[in-house]
Design a protein around this nucleic acid. Structure first.
Length: 282
DNA sequence: AAAGATGTTGCAAC
DNA sequence: GGTTGCAACATCTT
């Protein structure tokens, strides 16, 4: 589900609602959602989330599509929402929706942070500072698309080969792009997703860089794209889906030239493009 | 009504 | 290494 704009929106809303709150209790309904940091025995892992009880949430940040919650006492939680994960802030009396797998009770029981995930692909990892550092080092996430400089972007792209869409989806290349925003960026830049990353001109890479940032910033302004399950932590839907130029528009006219938008498969993912506006650089 | 699709990513195989 | 297919799982669409 969520890509950079959705995760960023969730992080911002979590900051507004639960920064500074203290963990009162934790209920785990589906244990596999709490994933091992590597070396715990199963029984130790099962009890690990109890370490957070009594700790205060002192920072909330994003690393690529990962949400990092920092607690007092040197504890962290890393949340990956994968396709259908949600982090929702609720009142305790709010009905517990189906597929709610973990509830963090906050503020002496006055507020809930709930993890909900229809397909159960997402997970929560409870980490010490050292374990977080080990993860950052080992499971390398590339620079943030909104923070990387153009020279660095250019150099990194020039060092990769393969289909451009596959490169952009690779979280070790840049952290945060996913299927929707790659398609939207490539349309805006007028570049075909199957273009070879080696055969792009400096001008094309410059356009790619600028459109990537403008698309992501606009999507954040609109609080992300709600196609199916994504909502921010208050339960509100994003609105950027209404501004999609190609994603989900197969068979509809291109908004630039009127040609029918095509859907093909690239890098194993459904891919939308305008065959006239987006040319292949081989 | 079965088959194919879905915003992710890790793994195995070639 | 890059690429492909599959796996994790529930639900919706064709």
């Amino acid at each position: 589900m969520p890509e950079l704009p959705e995760v960023e929106t969730i992080v911002r809303s979590l900051r507004a609602y639960i920064l500074g709150r203290k963990i009162f209790s934790i209920k785990v309904f589906l244990p596999k959602i709490i994933r091992s940091a590597g070396k715990e025995t199963p029984d130790k892992l099962a009890a690990k989330h109890e370490e957070l009880v009594g700790k205060t949430l002192i920072n909330i940040s994003r690393l690529g599509k990962n949400i990092i919650l920092q607690f007092s006492g040197g504890w962290y939680a890393r949340v990956h929402l994968k396709m259908t994960g949600q982090l929702l802030v609720n009142l305790p009396e709010d009905p517990i929706k189906k597929h709610t797998h973990v509830i963090f009770s906050l503020d002496g029981g006055k507020l809930d942070l709930r993890y909900r995930d229809i397909r159960q692909f997402g997970y929560i990892q409870i980490l010490t500072e050292q374990e977080l550092a080990d993860w950052v080092e080992g499971d390398f996430i590339g620079p943030d698309p909104l923070e990387i400089s153009f020279p660095c972007f250019l150099a990194r792209l020039r060092s990769r080969k393969g289909k451009l869409k596959a490169v952009l989806l690779n979280q070790a290349f840049l952290g945060g792009l996913g299927n929707i925003y790659v398609d939207e960026t490539l349309f805006q830049a007028g570049i075909h997703p199957e273009s070879s990353s080696l055969h792009l001109s400096d001008e094309e890479i410059s356009s790619l860089y600028q459109k990537m940032q403008s698309v992501l910033l606009a999507a954040i302004q609109y609080k992300g794209s709600s196609i199916r399950d994504y909502v921010e932590s208050s339960g509100e839907r994003g609105q950027y889906q209404n501004l999609h130029q190609v994603y989900g528009r197969a068979g509809l006219p291109c908004l630039k030239c009127g040609t029918r938008i095509e859907k093909i498969r690239v890098a194993g993912r459904g891919t939308y493009l305008c065959p006239l506006c987006q040319k292949v650089a081989r």
